[in-house]
């Protein structure tokens, strides 16, 4: 009796000790990240102008100055607004078209088989290489950027939707059929929800590409947008201004990702928590 109690007590203390130690000595993760950022910025600030020519690597303070300057002048906001509009409109049109196409193709294997080689070829074409052509066809304004964004978004969303619709677990379709669901009801109540995780993944993956499409379009020919602002700065060897523009792009991408993750978690409430991180190339 006594022995058992002692053993139990010992086990408890053994288990508690490491956790307590962790709690005492370690800062929360976000604080550690923040500390690391501060250190990195400080080192960078110290290096620039001493070890590295600020022309190549401007100090964070110089970048902040450049940012503040264009913010005060208002050019930053105008350019940001242009790029966000191009991205958003291109994304909406591209994603919507891709959803419809993905569902139609996914539902009729015949259409999918006939069009498959074309899609493979189109998808293999580097869209960036099409950008100059789009400028010739659609001008240097808003339209050519939106169309570039659409081509970037379309294939990612399309393939994910298509896969989602095709890969619905046959068991779900069978039980729904036996329970007496019509084709329409099966589509609405089984295929769509089952395909949602992949569709959402496609949408999430495509957003950074939408932003990239808009910026590349602006690099090639434009008179507005963050890409234009970055290009203008780099043309005049204004590295601080260039990096200020890149910083804004980064912030926009991170914000969109945050919002999307929040929406995704709400839509996919029924899925187990995943630690998955979406990665993208380019």
């Amino acid at each position: 009796m006594t022995r058992a109690t002692t053993t139990a007590r010992r086990t408890v203390t053994l288990q508690q000790r490491p956790a307590a130690r962790v709690r005492r000595r370690r800062l929360p993760v976000w604080a550690q990240s923040l500390a690391l950022l501060v250190v990195l910025l400080a080192v960078w600030e110290a290096f620039s102008g001493r070890l590295v020519d600020p022309f190549y690597l401007p100090a964070p303070s110089a970048i902040a100055d450049a940012l503040a300057e264009s913010a005060v002048a208002g050019t930053l906001w105008a350019n940001l607004w242009t790029t966000v509009q191009e991205t958003a409109i291109g994304f909406l049109i591209g994603a919507l078209a891709a959803l419809v196409a993905g569902i139609v193709f996914g539902r009729s294997p015949r259409v999918a088989a006939v069009l498959d080689p074309f899609l493979v070829a189109l998808n293999a074409t580097p869209r960036v290489a099409l950008a100059p052509l789009f400028v010739v066809w659609f001008g240097i304004g808003f339209l050519s950027k939106v169309i570039l964004v659409i081509t970037m978004v379309f294939f990612i969303v399309f393939y994910n939707t298509f896969q989602g619709v095709r890969s619905v677990d046959a068991t779900y379709l069978r039980v729904a059929t036996v329970m007496g669901a019509s084709q329409r009801q099966i589509f609405r109540t089984v295929i769509l929800p089952a395909a949602t995780p992949l569709i959402v993944l496609g949408l999430k993956l495509s957003i950074p590409f939408a932003l990239i499409g808009a910026v590349i379009g602006e690099f090639i020919a434009s008179s507005a947008g963050l890409g234009y602002q970055i290009k203008l700065a780099s043309n005049t060897y204004d590295t601080a201004g260039t990096m200020a523009g890149i910083f804004v792009l980064m912030v926009v991408a991170v914000l969109i990702d945050l919002v999307l993750n929040r929406i995704a978690r709400r839509v996919l409430f029924w899925q187990p928590e995943s630690t998955e991180r979406t990665t993208n190339t380019l």
Partner: peptide
């Protein structure tokens, strides 16, 4: 006739 069908693997819809 109406038929009820219980599959070999469990097949509740995970989203409901």
């Amino acid at each position: 006739v109406e038929i009820g069908y219980v599959t070999q693997s469990d097949s509740l819809f995970p989203w409901r």
